[in-house]
Design a binder for these strands. Sequence first.
DNA 1: ATAAATTTTTTTAATATTAAACAGGAGCGA
DNA 2: TCGCTCCTGTTTAATATTAAAAAAATTTAT
Lengths: 143, 143
Amino acid sequence: MNFQFSENERLNGKFIIALWRAYQFAHKKSMSLFRENRITMAQFMALEVLYNKGELSVQEIVSKVLSSSGNMTVVIKNLERDGLVIRRLNPGDGRSSLISLSSKGKLLMDKIFPLHIANLCDAFKVLSDGEKEKMINLLKKLK
Amino acid sequence: MNFQFSENERLNGKFIIALWRAYQFAHKKSMSLFRENRITMAQFMALEVLYNKGELSVQEIVSKVLSSSGNMTVVIKNLERDGLVIRRLNPGDGRSSLISLSSKGKLLMDKIFPLHIANLCDAFKVLSDGEKEKMINLLKKLK
DNA sequence: ATAAATTTTTTTAATATTAAACAGGAGCGA
DNA sequence: TCGCTCCTGTTTAATATTAAAAAAATTTAT
């Protein structure tokens, strides 16, 4: 005898799957974009934060992309190796260094960031602004 | 000069982040549950399909959890090593094998699956059934 | 029936991800 | 100042994930 679902449990199961599939769907086009430009999604997320916020410490990047510091160490190491970001010592704190986009990284983001945004808009075009706003407010209740 | 967002682009950005955070939030409690029971989330997802659908081929598992076959090969190899699943040759197709829960795997799922469902219900308890149904229907429009 | 195409799965290489431990700097109170 | 704690970042080990190539079985087309 396996576990038997109640109606409520069944609905919650459907809901978590719907969230997952919607998130996957929204990124499908951009995954190809990233692949063509030889970066991974994790690398893009770090580049995106630096592009929009400027020079940041590792810890600040981590808090923006909901990752872990151990993970971000690796991602930034690979971005540094590929010449997309630059690291300099933090003059105000001997423990940390500050990461920023190189000119090569800036050029890459100038090219692909608008395309990524266009992909997102395209993915969500079947929803109205009101529908999106309503869902954002409901989803924010989960905390 | 960095990229400037339009209102629509800003809303889509907020929406994708809201989806991501909601999905993460819904799994937070169960991540601890999985850790305590020495399995990973990827392993749980494979076990869950086998628990609810019975014996399946690798390809069938892959299609249920939206993974890749190369990835699932590894996940199942680790589950096999830990004695949680059993593999037997598929009598009807020489290319594939059939995977099923071992008694150890079944016992584990009897214990943690109801707890996982309870965690999901708890995470989503601030939303009404109507709100969840409405969102499921809207999210299904993304295809 | 044979050749071609497809399916299923594994393998390899590279990157990502987590947990856990660790090192060293910074901040703070006694 | 000393000692304690917190913060920041790296490292290690294990697992996951992807892309790409490959092997083998099956199916399809001719």
